[in-house]
Design a protein around this nucleic acid. Structure first.
Length: 104
DNA sequence: GAATTGACCAGCT
DNA sequence: AAGCTGGCCAATT
């Protein structure tokens, strides 16, 4: 039975290379806009660290958040993926996956 | 079933 | 600008 965790993993798995998503955005996508906490938990448990690109998930502040293998590793990986970072180690907002579909 | 935890977020100081 | 507090949710103990 698909728990919230499975949903999170599925969404994260759909993040295109070179893009990143925030915990809050993922929470909204799965239908629990206020469950960004549980989202973080789902990745923290990380049932499949090698099968899920959890390194493409960042915080709303632009901070890369955390990573089981280490934040530095996460940042480096993202850089390789094509995600750009500013001088402070913040993810460039333009690389965030927009789930809202450009509503005017 | 209650209490604790955690890779969070927004607001305030 | 940086740090702290409160609030939110699901899973675990």
């Amino acid at each position: 039975m698909p728990s919230l965790q499975e949903k999170v993993l599925s969404v994260v798995a759909t993040i295109p290379k070179g893009k990143v998503a925030t915990y809050a955005q993922i929470a909204k996508t799965i239908g629990h806009p206020r469950a960004f906490r549980a989202v973080g938990n789902a990745l923290n448990k990380n049932p499949r660290p090698l099968s899920i690109p959890c390194h493409r998930v960042v915080r709303s502040s632009g901070d890369i958040g955390g990573y089981i293998f280490g934040r530095m590793k996460k940042e480096t990986l993202l850089k390789k993926e094509g995600v750009r970072f500013d001088e402070r180690g913040r993810v460039v907002w333009g690389c965030i996956m927009e789930i809202y579909g450009n509503s005017s």
